[in-house]
């Protein structure tokens, strides 16, 4: 029950933080924004605590199962959002980020997993932790880019005019997430070479990681060409592609041909 309580508390804190932050934005009350951020920070601290607790009690990195990667992802979301808030002085991401983290935590609460300590031999590699941690950081960053695009599109639809700095946020996150995605891909190739002798086999999971990487090249090149950030739709479209790469691959007709089934 312990993890249910902690994850539940983290979800409540993040959810409350999202509501307060959204209210603060709607009513233009900075005090509510600050309170929302404080609650989200508390929720984030709890998430980090759960990850550390799981790592200690399981005796292995808690990034093996789908639920464990969801937890890591939920822990990365506030980290990236708070970095963006600090670096680019924007509150745009706090509420959507917290809402998304709550969604993934609720998924974990609804779909619990047996806490097995075993780790299959292929995963006992020095590349395992950097590969998964960097990939989850990339996914979280790109998801926030999608969220920022969605928020900006809604605001535009409501007739609000955002500043160029705000409009640049999805691109900034994209430029941050893409190198992480590339690093995850390269580390995965190095690991695969050591484990199986092939750095790339066009396995369904590998193919989708290529598709994700290739897809994000399009908005990056579009931005260079157009020299502006009005193209908000492409980062938004990237989100489902990332989700397919992460766990949707398990439902494809070729899923049985994949060797990357640790998280299914």
């Amino acid at each position: 029950m312990t993890d249910v309580l902690i994850l539940g508390s983290a979800a409540v804190l993040l959810g409350s933080g999202a509501v307060l932050d959204a209210l603060g934005t709607v009513r233009s009350q900075a005090r509510l924004n600050r309170q929302g951020v404080a609650l989200c920070l508390a929720g984030w601290a709890l998430l980090i605590g759960v990850v550390i607790w799981l790592w200690i009690t399981l005796g292995r990195p808690p990034i093996r199962t789908l639920g464990e990667t969801r937890l890591l992802y939920a822990a990365w979301l506030p980290a990236i959002a708070f970095f963006a808030r600090w670096r680019w002085k924007t509150d745009l991401l706090v509420a959507p980020m917290a809402a998304m983290a709550v969604l993934f935590l609720v998924l974990n609460l609804m779909l619990p997993e047996a806490r097995m300590k075993t780790l299959m031999p292929a995963l006992q590699s020095a590349w395992f932790v950097p590969h998964v941690v960097i990939y989850m950081a990339a996914y979280a960053t790109l998801a926030l880019s999608s969220l920022a695009s969605a928020v900006l599109l809604v605001r535009r639809w409501m007739g609000k005019r955002d500043s160029p700095t705000t409009l640049a946020l999805p691109n900034r996150l994209l430029w941050l997430g893409f190198p992480l995605l590339t690093a995850g891909l390269v580390i995965g190739a190095l690991w695969a070479k050591g484990a199986w002798g092939n750095y790339w086999t066009w396995d369904p999971k590998e193919t989708w990681s290529f598709l994700t990487w290739a897809f994000y090249l399009i908005p990056l090149h579009q931005r260079v060409q157009s020299g502006e950030s009005r193209s908000l739709w492409l980062p938004l479209l990237g989100f489902p592609i990332v989700l397919i790469c992460w766990f949707g691959v398990n439902y494809l007709p070729t899923a049985a041909q994949s060797v990357h089934t640790y998280t299914s």
């Binding site: 066009w202 369904p204 193919t207 989708w208 290529f210 598709l211 290739a214 897809f215 691959v249 494809l252 007709p253 070729t254 041909q257």
Partner: peptide, 12 residues
């Protein structure tokens, strides 16, 4: 990318 996508939708 579309070619590669085909490789994940059709059994290889």
């Amino acid at each position: 990318s579309v070619g590669a996508l085909g490789g994940t939708l059709i059994l290889q």
